[in-house]
Design a protein around this nucleic acid. Structure first.
Length: 362
DNA sequence: AAGCCGGGGAA
DNA sequence: TTCCCAGGCTT
């Protein structure tokens, strides 16, 4: 694009954004802290998913200092279900760093922001431009797609060199004023018009006159993406160990997936009742009764768990596990969603039992 | 550059 | 089912 085209592109995109921007809590009442938190929550996570978490989070941790002083387990409980739990740990760590190194104020430049845990190139650009007006790009998945179409890029956008090129193109069209709004406009366009799935709504696009893909009718061919790698498959057996209405849980250890979160006991591989009984006996536990549970499949981005399970009535607590009532588990422990299916099963069972109790009393 | 790290909505 | 989401960190 030449100079005049760029100015026209900027103008049309900004005008479109100001007329069509969606309402978001961190947009209506912005502050550097709120923008930072929202941007971290929005990493690989949809806006609609984030909003309720954001509201709860800000109510509980209204300032950098509150976050810095937070209890990690409580923080993870707040984060439960949002995924990518390192984000929460990094947020807390960064808050402590902001107190120590930046006098409690969110740093105002891309370079300083970039030194904080959990803030990479995208998030540093987003906070620097939106909160402080620094002229830096904020290139997320939306912007890669939009810019690939605008420039007619036929290369695989998953490749590093393609991304480098598209970041340079983005910087090239970045205005001197309203950078924050411009960056948000590119993302908003990608989320609502220049969409990733289905047919992009080019009829509604404010910059289609400057779009190479539209000019060549390649908007459904671009961006180019290589197909994803297959997920690793894992077979595991989950155990619901119950004793007097209390159930065994344990905290997942570092390193590895879901570390720091709670889970039901589980082991690698599939086993028969007898084998499970022997394993329990080895850890000094006696099974009084055992029933098989339905199979479940849990899909992560790079991994699949195929779960079998047994519900075991124990003679007494043991095995080094923590035992807690369902209510306590729900209220106090951050449990990975992979195990929520089995917890719900237990809940239904308890409710059915209560209902049955009601029947017999009648 | 590639692998790891979650969970959910939508087609 | 698959794709992808206002990505970052580690190896």
């Amino acid at each position: 694009m030449d100079r005049n085209a760029i100015l026209d592109f900027q103008d049309h995109l900004l005008q479109w954004f100001w007329a069509n921007r969606r309402t978001m809590p961190w947009r209506e009442v912005p502050s550097p802290y709120r923008i930072w938190i929202s941007e971290v929550m929005l990493q690989q996570t949809r806006v609609e998913t984030v909003i309720p978490y954001f509201q709860r989070f800000l109510a509980k941790y209204p300032t950098v200092a509150d976050l810095a002083q937070s209890d990690e387990e409580e923080l993870l409980k707040q984060w439960e279900g949002l995924g990518y739990y390192s984000r929460a740990r990094n947020l807390r760590h960064a808050a402590q760093e902001i107190l120590e190194r930046f006098q409690g104020e969110v740093p105002q430049t891309f370079e300083e922001l970039r030194t904080l845990k959990g803030i990479g190139e995208y998030t540093a650009g987003a906070v620097a431009s939106m909160a402080f007006g620094q002229r830096v790009p904020a290139v997320d998945g939306n912007v890669y797609r939009v810019m690939a179409r605008v420039t007619g890029c036929r290369e695989d956008i998953a490749q590093g060199k393609t991304q480098k090129l598209l970041k340079a193109e983005t910087l090239n069209v970045l205005p001197d004023h309203h950078v924050g709004d411009f960056n948000q406009a590119l993302m908003e366009l990608g989320a609502t018009v220049c969409i990733p799935k289905g047919v992009p709504k080019c009829g509604q696009c404010p910059v289609k006159d400057h779009c190479e893909a539209f000019r060549e009718t390649l908007q459904e061919e671009i961006p180019v993406k290589g197909k994803a790698k297959e997920r690793r498959q894992e077979e595991r057996t989950v155990l619901i160990l119950e004793q007097a209405g209390r159930y065994a849980v344990r905290r997942r250890e570092e390193p590895g997936i879901l570390h720091g979160l709670y889970e039901l006991p589980n082991v690698s591989g599939y086993y028969s009742k007898e084998e499970i009984q022997a394993m329990l006996a080895e850890k000094g536990m006696t099974a009084l009764a055992m029933t098989a549970l339905p199979e479940q499949k849990i899909v992560f981005s790079h991994l699949e768990w195929h779960l079998e399970g047994y519900q075991v009535k124990l003679k007494e607590e043991g095995g080094g596990y923590r035992f807690a009532s369902l209510q306590e588990i729900r209220e106090s422990f951050s449990v990975a969603s992979a195990f929520q299916g089995y917890l719900t099963l237990l809940e239904n069972e308890e409710n059915a039992l209560k209902a049955e109790g009601g029947e017999t009393c009648r």
